[in-house]
Amino acid sequence: MLSIKNIHANIDGKQILKGINLEIKAGEVHAIMGPNGSGKSTLSSVLAGREEYEVTEGEVKFLGKDLLSLPAEDRAREGLFLAFQYPVEIPGVSTTNFIKAAVNEKRKYLGQDPLDAVSFLKMMKEKMAMVEINQSLLSRSINEGFSGGEKKRNEVFQMAMLEPKLAILDETDSGLDIDALRIVANGINKLRSSDRAILLITHYQRLLDYIQPDFVHVLYKGKIVKSGTKELALELEERGYDFITEAADMANL
């Protein structure tokens, strides 16, 4: 589904990603872990299409298409979803209208008719129940005055509504207390399916107690320095990143 080959990326002339390779197949859950500053958020930004990042080398295929040549909105319409680490507050735009616009822009792109009001409301109700989000949040402006947990729940709700093929969850666990984390993780688990891939980006192993990944990769200094199964995450939790980063630094000397 997603094939990343030798990606190098800069921001403001500073090289952050230095040759990333990753293959993700439908139905798989991958976790990318790594210490602060290793390039985790840069990777998600490059995949989602933030224009301030410059890709200098490498390619990304998403469902056979050249992802990097598409603008951010077309990536979303093709089925890529980024749950933001810091969801943006947008006063004056109602969450419901926003999601309706997003759903219908995607349908238009795919050559489908827009959803009528009844079908849209039915879909909203279904997904609201699935991710345990309250109607009152959705009638407010996008994320305005939401708590950290509410913002993340809203991200998962949008993911449910947009039914992406690949969801990238950027530090979705950050800033959540244990109850909020459980609710958010439950929502994500309900969205796991055999035709959907999930890429979890996280600093801590904590999230992976709730969402069990098939593969775990460690990102360090802009490269994936180790890959393994979920046991790798447990080992990181126990031993910290040092045993991997030191080995990587040694190899680079």
């Binding site: 909105e73 735009v93 997003a102 995607k106």
Partner: peptide, 20 residues
């Protein structure tokens, strides 16, 4: 960018923000 990352075109995103 947040709006575009949900599949909303830049043009429509601008209109939504100006309306807001």
């Amino acid at each position: 960018f947040y709006l575009r990352a949900r599949g909303i075109s830049r043009e429509l995103a601008e209109v939504l923000l100006l309306q807001a």
